[in-house]
Write a protein that binds this DNA or RNA. Structure first.
Lengths: 202, 202, 202, 202
DNA sequence: GATGAATGAGGGTTCATTCAT
DNA sequence: TATGAATGAACCCTCATTCAT
């Protein structure tokens, strides 16, 4: 009985936290990557005062960190899941690419948040740590697949190529979504893989 | 006589402006991509008061805009010059890639300024306009070279691939310079071009 | 029966109040005489929410007032008891001095609370009233003893001297406990009494 | 010429700083030893916004520290001067006592500031350092005089007695100025000295 | 009785900008 | 040209208090 109450409380609290996190992402998108203010965030979340934030998060930085953990973590989870479902090495690579260009990552809001995140990585140690984790997982999954497709000594090099093209297309897309469609971006990446693997197997 | 005085004055004024622009870049680098404050900038420029800035620039935004014009313009000029020196289409492409990984663009400070610039493009219309110009020139030079190397209908697609990999490697390098050397980044780009052209000419 | 329940309830309530009062003193000591926050106090008392305080006290000021009543009242009671036990006028004066330097008043926490109290007297009317009561009792006890030792017209003057030296040594001790030991402080006061009475009876 | 300008500027700045310091003391007195707010201070100084304070002081703590340096320093200077003017050891002790009860230290505002200062010494390290300096000088002057009046081994003990009675009377006076006049306080101290020296020379 | 949610006021600080000199 | 003075807006954060459960 007590347990139920506590779970409900816990759940309720998490719901409100999630609402604030969502509000944060929403505001980041809306104000164009500028530092979101707590006032705007709490207003968006339907709360009346910015002081409520400290009820749920230690401070602004903590809110931002948890927002990114939620966001990047969501992507990471989806990616790992997709890759795991790949039957062959090549399929796994495709899955990884697909994850990067998945609809959930391509909404205007998601793009804004990614840009916000990347732009702050060099300044924000919390963000940097998240980025390191993200990159570790991505590069790891990629290498595990590549190792069966290319000579050992070329794995690192190929992995870097694939990651780079994904990041690059993402950046291009974010800088001006009208310049390139996601489909094209997706295709370019796949083609690159083909080309690289093609020339690596004489 | 008066003209000479005015020219001197004008020249002097430009010198001071350049000093402030350099100070701006210096501070951007030092404070880690955070919004530089006028106080920090004027201090770095050896001026004692931040109010002096409005003698040379309308406001902070104007200073930032001119800083980016100076910085991005410098890169653009160098790039155009290098490409023009290329004897063949392929050489021109190499030249364009070389320009992107040129030493002048790879100092820690230059990397910081690039990141600052890119991160603000979605927020700052002035920056966005500069970015559009930059991209127009780059893509133009690239296409002029590609048109002689690949079928017409593939030019856009190839150009986008090359630009994307450059941007991607840049982003990777900026996020963590220790993860990849510029030499590797350079080589990956060149290899990509080879691979793409390779598979496009069976 | 009902009465018993109510008494128990009343007793329980008083226990909780006392816990909060103790917590208040504990926090005052720990945070170094700064204004204690209700959050810190309720946390120290083992309660999870600061809002519980208003169940037991009207508001923060009331809690502080009752804390001081408890603390100063404790000292006052002890002092009155000690003085009453004195057999002669001189013994009563000694008892009064002893009470001021009694172990219970000399713990680091007690010193902090005294300092907090004195420092707030000029600001806090509740505290001021408590201080007036304290002083009234002390000076009264002192004068009743002195009246048998010195000429009538000098009683006020002597009383003031003794009280002042006690307060002064206390302040000195509180400002830096390492500068003077309590034993020395005690001795100085006794000596003063001797000296004063000595010269008053040629 | 330039020097004159700089001096004027410097002087002007110091004038404004002094105004803010005076405003701080004024507000401390008026709001009854509570932490003065920058808004109240700048308002009192005739400035419109609290932000101006950071033009002259790093932050609030710095303003408070300099206020106390100014205030306590003023007393210390006066005391040292008075003591130096004393012709004999006894005169020097009288001078020290006089300094403590000098009119400049006995205005209602001065009393408030002293109470504010003492109350914060245990919390504020800057204040503590000032207090240590003050006490060092006072005790030093006192001992130099006492050494010619009482046996060597009693100097410390006597000095502590005198300081304590001064502090005590001060505290008494501050807690309720109506309870004791400064004249009486002064007389009590002098009498104590007589009494102590009297009994020390059998 | 006890908890967590929510509010609103207030404070210190930063900063771009304007103005007088 | 250059400086220092001054302003006002904005922001984050703390905290006592109230309310529903």
């Amino acid at each position: 009985m007590l347990k139920t109450v506590m779970q409900n409380t816990r759940k309720k609290q998490n719901i409100r936290k999630k609402e604030l996190i969502n509000a944060t992402m929403s505001i980041i998108h809306e104000t164009g990557l500028a530092d979101p203010t707590l006032a705007a965030i709490s207003d968006r979340a339907g709360l009346s005062s910015s002081s409520i934030v400290s009820h749920y998060f230690k401070n602004k930085q903590e809110l931002l960190k948890e927002t990114m953990l939620d966001f990047v973590g969501g992507f990471l989870g989806e990616m790992v899941f997709r890759v795991a479902a790949g039957k062959s090495p090549l399929e796994k690579i495709y899955a990884l690419i697909d994850a990067n260009f998945a609809p959930s990552q391509c909404t205007p809001e998601a793009i804004s948040v990614w840009m916000f995140f990347w732009g702050r990585v060099p300044v924000n140690e919390d963000f940097a740590e998240i980025e390191r984790t993200l990159e570790k997982y991505m590069i790891n999954e990629l290498k595990q697949a590549l190792i069966e497709l290319v000579p050992n000594e070329q794995v690192d090099y190929f992995a870097e190529s694939v990651i780079a093209i994904i990041y690059g297309l993402w950046l291009r897309f974010a800088l001006d979504p009208k310049r390139i469609t996601l489909e094209t971006a997706h295709k370019i990446t796949i083609d690159l893989v083909h080309a690289r693997i093609g020339i690596s197997k004489p």
